[in-house]
Write a protein that binds this DNA or RNA. Structure first.
Lengths: 340, 340
DNA sequence: ATGAAAGCGCTAACAG
DNA sequence: CTGTTAGCGCTTTCAT
């Protein structure tokens, strides 16, 4: 592999001039610039990433802090990872994957290795030890999601308020008055998992504002739990006709429970899956009306915000909220006229 | 951040002694070793990854060459990525994600940056330009999957022969004599996508060996295509009672087509989903009997083989084949006695 | 507009 | 067993 010295020699200039030409760090006469680029071309020169990083103190590598598969991973995460990787590459950065439990002590070590310039944190919890550590070390980071006190921090997140509102509106406009909400588990809620907490809260507000009847329920992320939870919910509230579910893994159980009652979706129950991808929505019969998260956008935007923060001289910490998009499929329909 | 110089001063030894102590590259008296480690502890010293990489010419970073979402990504890929990342970290390596189309010219640039020691290539095609490039540059790599001529290269792959055999056996033992196989698309086959080609071939061999009747069909990776393909297959071969499907995305369409005929799974048709994860298998009604790929093992093993290759002095290029595991769920049952 | 030279923090000869 | 020193390939002052 040729180095800068080789290029400099061949172009008949000083080593530093090559560097400046490459980085545009200072004015170079058009003529020498040409010579240098020609020399690079001829030699097949490519700057050495490590050397550049060591000298400049900027590795141009960022880390994606990825949750370990506690709650099981979805397609969501995958799309996220790939879009983040692509966004990073588009900006000339590399993305390394750090898959760690939120309370891992390893994070500190990793950060202190000086390998990465900044960190993109996925699945931020309301009280997240990773965020505390990053703040303590004053290490640059952006979040996907938010923690309890996110002022002065950079993040992108789903606009859960708007998303929840869209779901409630959709059912309300179809004439549903009695609406159930099946959330993630109570444990997730207690642990302060953002979406769980935010949607739970907003659901009640939206229901109240629209003068509907609403009832919420937690549910573990499993088919069996979905089955149980739905049956319990309908035993307690037989008049429910609309259901908002933010729990992809519970959905097959719910569908099964509906069908075992001899009911059908959407004739007897309308169902909206919150923060759920098209891929999953099309696995079921009927296909699911969803509010689909703009995953790729979130991933790319998260990376952009982080890099912006790394390269900006001013200490502005950008934030962004993106709503999910309503995609109407087969699982929602007009509410029945007659009460059951 | 403290550096080695600081540690050396504090421990009262030479800079290099610290280095040797850290890397175990040469014998150090127990006493000085203690002093050095104490000093590191007190200062909170962590070796600088870039500096180490530059000096040693080994970055301890590997890249995962990730396919761009052409055919759409599955859960499979995700689990793969996370297990690879974890395996790498366990061995003291970092994993960067390079998400590129197989024919991208960018790969060459990335490799020449000198950032990574080796590459793990996912979704290898039978004729894969990435592999050709890696060979040309003599760049260390391992593959997930194999290309046409894989001798002398390091890879891990699913044992498709064994997997296909298991599927055929399973149906045969249930008394099915007329067995259909729904593959990925013809395009995937033509493009030399490994699983598509290998299973197609092995299916015929296994059917012949067991003296059964078999019929294969290609199918695009979509619900609609699954629906069409199934109907066509049953029009042409009405006696089919067992179906092997290696196309997760087509399955909902198949299930729908079965139900529209007034048939049921598994009473009228038994169905096995090949190389399909539990997560998907439990989304449907009935749940799917599958041959589940050992994804996490493949990811971890792939990383291990690559690192082994990087660190071994001898030029052995290890290979491994892992079979899928048969998990019987609700979609398979005894063949009907009577012909339809 | 260009050069010369001093590091960045570490590894690995070379020399005792 | 330990110390000295020359790089690794680049960025970035400081000169001119």
């Amino acid at each position: 592999m040729p180095t800068m010295v080789d290029v400099a020699k061949r172009a008949g200039v000083a080593l530093s001039t090559v560097s400046y030409a490459l980085n545009g760090t200072r004015p170079i006469s058009e003529e020498t610039r040409q010579r240098i680029y020609a020399a690079m071309e001829e030699l097949g020169y490519k700057p050495h990433a490590l050397a550049r990083g060591l000298a400049s103190k900027r590795s141009k590598i960022i880390a994606l802090l990825f949750p370990t598969p506690e709650r099981g991973l979805g397609l969501t995460e995958l799309e996220f990872v790939t879009s983040a990787a692509e966004a990073a590459r588009n900006k000339g950065y590399h993305l390394v994957l750090w898959s760690l439990p939120t309370d891992s002590s390893e994070l500190r070590q990793l950060l202190q290795q000086g390998l990465v310039d900044g960190v993109l944190v996925m699945e931020v919890h309301l009280n997240d030890p990773r965020i505390e550590l990053l703040r303590e070390l004053e290490f640059p980071f952006s979040m996907i999601g938010r923690c309890a006190e996110s002022t002065g921090m950079s993040y992108v997140d789903i606009d859960f308020d708007r998303t929840t509102q869209l779901a409630v509106n959709c059912l309300a406009e179809l004439g549903h008055r009695q609406i159930g909400f099946i959330n993630h588990s109570h444990e997730a809620f207690e642990a302060g998992y953002g979406p769980t907490v935010r949607v739970a809260q907003r659901f009640n507000e939206a229901i109240a504002a629209a003068q509907l009847h609403g009832v919420s329920s937690f549910c573990h992320d499993s088919v069996a739990a979905g089955y149980e939870t739905f049956n319990q919910l309908l035993t307690d509230h037989p008049a429910l006709s609309g259901l908002i579910v933010m729990n992809e893994r519970a959905i097959p159980g719910i569908i099964q429970a509906v069908s075992e009652r001899g009911w059908s979706i959407p004739d007897d129950i309308s169902l909206i899956s919150l923060v759920s991808s098209a891929r999953v929505a099309e696995m079921t019969l009927p296909t699911l009306t969803t509010l689909e998260p703009p995953i790729a956008e979130l991933g790319a935007l998260g990376v952009d915000l982080l890099i912006q923060q790394l390269e900006a001289q001013d200490r502005e910490l950008p934030q962004a909220l993106l709503p999910c998009q309503l995609v109407v499929r087969g699982s929602t329909g007009q509410a029945r006229r007659t009460e059951r």
